[in-house]
């Protein structure tokens, strides 16, 4: 958590940060707004061979090739067809000193809230369908529950070396 604080260079006095929230399968989720690069309507996504199912493919985002993650699939939620409100939230993730830009498919965007990070509640063991490794904590705003996501783990690059070592042996 403190790591994320430093990253975002947030206001130390209030420890409050702005979060962009979005809907996914009827629940409201939040990501740190400083990580958000943009919000994009649905566009053609080119599938990547040998990729996990939750990676829909890649998209051209102003000349950069950006992988698109289907959050519903990532969190083992039921599929939903792409609708009018479906948007891709483009975020920056940090992993081992490397930063990557990825897109997340969400049902719809909602609001921007200021959230006091010290008042976050941990995820109870049984809660929600989202596995706890992606969740920073829970927050309550206007009697609503918000699930704040830790996006750095969304794109699993742990198996990164496997295909790489194969091709370098070529």
């Amino acid at each position: 958590m403190s790591h994320a604080d430093i990253m975002a260079g947030s206001n130390a006095e209030a420890d409050s940060k702005q979060y962009l929230t979005f809907y996914l399968n009827g629940e409201e989720y939040g990501v740190e707004i400083l990580r958000v690069q943009g919000i994009q309507g649905w566009d053609t996504v080119t599938p990547i061979p040998h990729s996990p199912e939750y990676i829909l493919g890649v998209m051209n985002l102003r000349g950069a090739i950006v992988p698109i993650i289907d959050l519903r699939k990532r969190f083992n939620m039921p599929d939903m067809d792409i609708g009018k409100t479906t948007v891709i939230i483009v975020v920056k993730t940090h992993n081992d000193d490397e930063s990557r830009t990825i897109g997340m498919v969400t049902d719809a965007v909602s609001e921007v809230y200021s959230i006091d990070e010290n008042a976050l509640q941990p995820l109870p063991d049984f809660g929600g369908s989202v596995s706890s490794e992606f969740v920073k904590g829970l927050s309550t705003i206007e009697d609503k529950m918000l699930i704040l996501l830790d996006i750095d783990r969304l794109l699993d690059i742990r198996d990164k070396l496997a295909p790489n070592s194969q091709s370098s042996a070529a």
């Binding site: 990547i48 040998h50 990676i55 690059i157 295909p163 091709s167």
Partner: peptide, 15 residues
Amino acid sequence: SLEENYKPVAGLAGA
């Protein structure tokens, strides 16, 4: 490069 935001993919040189 695909690696920039994703990872190398076997069988692909890039996009």
